[in-house]
Amino acid sequence: MFDAPLRRVLEAPLARIAATIDKRWVTPDRLTTSGLVLGLGSAVTAGLQWWYIALVLWLLSRCADGLDGPLARHRQTQSGAGGFYDITADFIVYGSTVVGVAVGVSAAFGAPQWPFLFVLLAYYINGAAFLAFSSIAEKTGRTLDDGRSLSFLGGLAEGAETVLVHSLWLLFPMFGWQIALVWSVVVGVSAAQRIVGGYRALS
């Protein structure tokens, strides 16, 4: 929901940061890898109930993820391979952090894990919807170009909201399952929006 306005606000600052870190040994793929490793570290530390460490790793992971694209655009080296790696890494990080938080809150507070299963199901449906749309839109010439490698369908829950909610889990783990339950509904509504919107856009 907030991704488009945030991209407009952050485009110039991220471009400046990308120019600053444009060193021979810093590449977009290495930034993606850093985001992936940090994200997995956040999932593991959440499972161990090291909440603040997990939060720092999560935020650093998303910062690295937010810079790989601007650096590729700065160097004019955007590629399908880089876009594929980036979205795959995002899916791995999002899914693993849900699992890590579920394990952590269950062990620490005896919280139920089924709300987190609903979150994973909603993520799965959302991913299927926008990946299928992106593929078919490419074949039919109906792509939505916002500078990213894939055609993303907007929805109530997007990247910014995901970063916020995963941060809330780590800040307030004692309410983790309740947050997960509400979040699963929000992501489920987003999935419905993307299914309907994608069908209409391709009709």
Rank of each mutant, 00 (worst) to 15 (best):
S61D: 07
S61K: 11
C63S: 15
C63N: 13
C63D: 12
G66I: 15
G66P: 01
G66W: 12
L67F: 10
G69A: 01
P70N: 15
L71Q: 04
A72L: 11
A72R: 01
R73W: 05
R73A: 12
R73C: 14
H74R: 04
Q76N: 12
Q78Y: 05
S79V: 02
S79E: 00
A81K: 10
A81D: 05
G83P: 05
G83D: 08
F84I: 04
F84K: 06
Y85A: 04
Y85D: 00
D86M: 04
D86A: 03
I87C: 04
I87T: 12
T88F: 05
T88N: 07
A89D: 06
D90A: 06
F91H: 09
I92G: 08
V93S: 01
V93I: 15
V93H: 08
Y94M: 14
Y94F: 13
G95N: 14
S96Q: 08
S96M: 15
V99I: 15
G100L: 11
G100D: 06
V101H: 11
A102D: 09
V103R: 08
S106H: 11
A107T: 10
A108Y: 04
F109Q: 10
F109R: 11
A111Y: 13
P112N: 05
P112A: 10
P115M: 05
F116P: 03
L117D: 07
L117T: 13
F118C: 12
F118Y: 09
V119C: 10
V119R: 07
L121M: 14
L121D: 09
Y123K: 11
Y124Q: 11
Y124H: 11
I125T: 04
I125H: 02
I125G: 04
